[in-house]
């Protein structure tokens, strides 16, 4: 196996307490973003049983729209809301144009459709915004807040706060509203839900719209840190998918938990040996799955057992 550092060997270093605190802060921020993206995966999975490979592109589009609006002089809250609104529409449009016409097709066919959509969206993003990264202002001042030896940005707090608020919002939606109850019913058993008069098709569209909105929000909050670029969605989408699986797909609290865990793993992995950080994160994810084959909070048997 490669020693940390390839040809030139550098010993892996153990972090000090102060460093560990910083790793944790970074990991939690990163993890919150992953968790937010994972929530988008969860919603669509629950409504349709598929993994939406265009989720990462929802995030990229959200980031690019938000930064363009902010660049054009819109105040930040308005820029973020615009991005969310645009992505809600795009999510719904994707469902209407590509998913609904293929109703009845197998899960894997639908997944390939989302892969096609992701390629299409990435192409459009490059055409519209060009290949270079673009900047976005932070929501508030860029001056860090010092926590003893570590430091945290206001944007980090925004990210964590927004993720908590989003979870709360989704929980209220699911538990307290008619629509949320209908969505949950569809997630449990689509046919049965339809029999009791729930418009399942509309619930699928709603799930895509909500996922789009979450993607737009995730893109908007991460862009000030990561910059916006047409292909930023590939890696973020993958990490989001990983988080959703780690938490147990279909489980919203699990998605956020999976995200946080992945973020912290990646952070600690980088602290140990930065060249292998993704390998460390994916490796531990695999081990978790081997111990708990349906993720941390997953149901006993996952949906979409076979691909066919």
């Amino acid at each position: 196996m490669p020693a940390c550092g390839g040809r030139t060997l550098y010993a892996m270093t153990l972090p000090t307490g102060a460093q560990l605190l910083q790793y944790l802060i970074s990991g939690l921020t990163l993890g919150s973003v992953y968790g937010m993206i994972a929530l988008g995966f969860t919603l669509i999975h629950n409504a349709t049983g598929i993994v939406n490979f265009a989720q990462g592109e929802f995030v990229a589009f959200g980031a690019l729209i938000a930064l363009s609006c902010s660049e054009a002089g819109l105040p930040m809250p308005l820029a973020v809301l615009t991005a969310m609104a645009a992505m809600t529409l795009l999510g719904a449009a994707l469902e209407r144009a590509a998913i609904r016409p293929a109703r009845g097709a197998s899960v894997i066919t639908l997944i390939i459709i989302t892969i096609g959509a992701s390629i299409l969206l990435r192409g459009i993003a490059m055409w519209q915004w060009g290949p270079d990264a673009l900047p976005m202002r932070h929501f508030s001042s860029e001056d860090p807040i010092h926590l003893g030896p570590a430091s945290i940005l206001r944007q980090h707090l925004w990210i964590m706060g927004i993720v908590v608020a989003t979870m709360l919002g989704l929980w209220l939606l699911a538990e307290r509203t008619q629509v949320g109850k209908a969505m949950r019913a569809c997630a449990v058993d689509r046919e049965a839900a339809q029999l009791v008069g729930i418009p399942a098709a509309r619930m699928v569209m709603l799930s895509f719209a909500l996922s789009g909105m979450l993607g737009g929000l995730a893109g908007s909050i991460v862009a000030p840190l990561s910059m916006g670029q047409y292909n930023m969605g590939i890696m973020l989408g993958l990490k989001g998918f990983c988080a959703a699986i780690l938490g147990g797909i279909g489980n919203a609290p699990g998605a956020v938990l999976g995200g946080l865990l992945l973020g912290i793993l990646e952070s600690l992995g980088a602290g140990l040996c930065s060249g292998m950080k993704d390998a460390v994160a994916f490796g531990i994810m695999l081990m978790v799955l081997l111990v708990r084959p349906t993720g941390l909070l997953g149901r006993r048997a996952g949906r979409g057992e076979a691909v066919g």
Binding site: P2, F241, A279, F282, L286, P293, G295, G298, G304
Partner: peptide
């Protein structure tokens, strides 16, 4: 890996693929 089902297997194989590629990049010797 094959103890995993459905999307979990998809993620498991994906993670395996990522690790193999990282090793190809990092194991320069």
């Amino acid at each position: 890996l094959l103890k995993l089902r459905g999307h979990y297997l998809a993620m498991g194989t994906l993670g395996f693929g990522m690790i193999v590629q990282i090793v190809m990049v990092q194991w320069e010797d």
